[in-house]
């Protein structure tokens, strides 16, 4: 009973927050709603006995990803409303509505794979974090290391991309003006 109440409450909150994210004209409101939605999603992970995943969701998404977005928005002008011209709203809502219907039908249809054998059964003797660690560092060790290298590459790429000509273009000059000012200095 408590599970049902929690599920419907958080489902409503998540859908509401993400609808605000998608529909809002203000970038700041959209980002705040996205951060709230991320935290509400972690509630589902706690409901599903995936405690470690829920903690990681809060730390990585609400902590790291949202902080990166907030820093990125300092570079961009977010105070004014986002101007978007949408030639056909009907097509957008029709297409996504159809996809939604199709997805729900697929999900509701009887699942054929009822005889799925669990490769790594969840044991209740040890905690979730411990179980995840055991599987992650035995079977998924190579993907784990590859993911680590991918994060390193992404970090270096992010630093290099964002810091390119950072000393010059605080005033957001376009390239030609930067080149011109360089020549004038010489």
């Amino acid at each position: 009973m408590v599970e049902a109440i929690a599920f419907y409450l958080f489902a409503f909150l998540t859908v509401a927050m993400f609808t605000i994210t998608v529909m809002s004209k203000n970038a700041l409101y959209a980002m705040s709603a996205l951060a709230a939605g991320m935290i509400f999603i972690s509630a589902f992970f706690f409901l599903l006995d995936a405690d470690f995943l829920g903690v990681v969701q809060i730390i990585v998404y609400s902590g790291a990803v949202m902080a990166v977005y907030a820093f990125g928005m300092m570079f961009l002008d977010t105070t004014k409303d986002v101007k978007e011209k949408n030639p056909s709203k009907k097509i957008v809502f029709f297409l996504s509505g159809m996809v939604a219907l199709l997805l729900v039908l697929i999900v509701l249809s009887p699942i054929v794979s009822d005889k799925v054998q669990a490769l790594y059964p969840i044991s209740h003797d040890i905690g979730n974090a411990e179980a995840v660690g055991i599987v992650l560092f035995t079977k998924y060790l190579v993907p784990f290391e590859v993911a680590a290298i991918m994060l390193l590459v992404a970090m270096i790429a992010g630093i290099i991309l964002a810091s390119k000509r950072m000393d010059e273009s605080i005033t957001l000059k376009i390239d030609q003006e930067i080149e011109r000012s360089k020549k004038e200095q010489q």
Partner: peptide, 30 residues
């Protein structure tokens, strides 16, 4: 299904999303 693999895939998706944000935002700023 009582299988931990789903959670592990979710972890890898979170890692991919984090690196996507880092690179994508750098490109966006440029």
């Amino acid at each position: 299904y009582g299988d931990l693999t789903g959670q592990l895939f979710a972890f890898f998706i979170i890692a991919v999303a984090a690196s996507e944000v880092a690179v994508g935002l750098g490109l966006l700023i440029i």
